[in-house]
């Protein structure tokens, strides 16, 4: 079996072996969204206005729940250092890993967001724009949080540091996505902004795995 095939199979089996990691972000998202009307007001007009932004931020935070675990278990068990003996460049393995993570954890989470949209009475056309921005933006976000996770592997315990370190870099993605949502709600053209968002994601998904690879290599070399 090729390395790529083995990677995919293993990631899929890991999802099945750890259902908690799969459902927890969704649970978190719905829970946070149900707190919004309690904290604000049950007025559906008001909720509809801020709903899409709330869902965006809640999804972002839900994504970060699992981010720290991306490499940590494999690093501690010593599986990560075996990656180096596969006949593939490290950044390619990182891309594979991140793609699997995106496909198996992030996409299912995005598919739950329409439910959150209904809870906050977000209009349908805004909801569609929201789904598209999430799909376009999450590859970049996954790459950034992976870098945070890889950089903090050398810390003694797992924690939120990787998220804190990376969150400021999310600003352009959030701004672009919010721009799309504003335009979608007043009915103007969202395509140019979506193109920018997609470009950012593509750039991040091609360049950041290199940095993640260097960070992983550093941590493998630095541990004895």
């Amino acid at each position: 079996m090729s390395v790529e095939h083995r990677f995919l199979v293993r990631e899929l089996k890991l999802v099945l072996a750890r259902p908690g990691d799969f459902f927890k972000p969704m649970w978190f998202l719905i829970l946070v969204i149900s707190m919004v009307p309690l904290a604000l007001s049950p007025d559906s007009k008001l909720l509809g206005e801020i709903g899409s932004a709330m869902i965006w931020v809640a999804t972002l935070l839900a994504l970060l729940l699992n981010a720290d675990q991306l490499f940590r278990d494999d690093f501690v068990d010593g599986v990560l250092e075996q990656w180096l003996f596969f006949n593939r460049p490290l950044f390619w393995l990182v891309i594979l890993k991140l793609f699997c993570h995106w496909l198996f954890y992030v996409v299912p989470l995005i598919l739950v967001t329409p439910l959150a949209g209904m809870m906050l009475s977000v209009p349908n056309d805004v909801m569609i724009a929201l789904l598209v921005t999430l799909l376009l933006a999450t590859p970049a976000l996954t790459c950034f949080s992976a870098l945070g996770a890889a950089l903090t592997l050398g810390t003694a315990r797992s924690g939120i540091l990787g998220v804190l370190v990376m969150l400021p870099l999310f600003a352009p993605v959030i701004i672009l996505a919010a721009g799309v949502l504003t335009r979608a709600s007043d009915g103007s053209d969202i395509l140019p902004l979506l193109a920018l968002l997609g470009a950012f994601s593509i750039a991040a998904a091609t360049l950041l795995p290199l940095a993640v690879g260097v960070a992983l290599r550093l941590n493998i070399g630095g541990s004895s």
Binding site: M1, S2, V3, R6, F7, V9, R10, K13, L14, A17, R18, D73, D74, V76, D77, G78, V79, E81, Q82, F85
Partner: peptide, 25 residues
């Protein structure tokens, strides 16, 4: 090279067979 470190190099949440199938071709 085949490197066997003093870390277990197996994932606790996977079966023996799945672990082995991942590490070798």
């Amino acid at each position: 090279i085949l490197y066997l470190g003093h870390k277990p190099q197996v994932c606790q949440d996977l079966s023996i067979m799945d672990n082995l199938m991942f590490l070798t071709d």
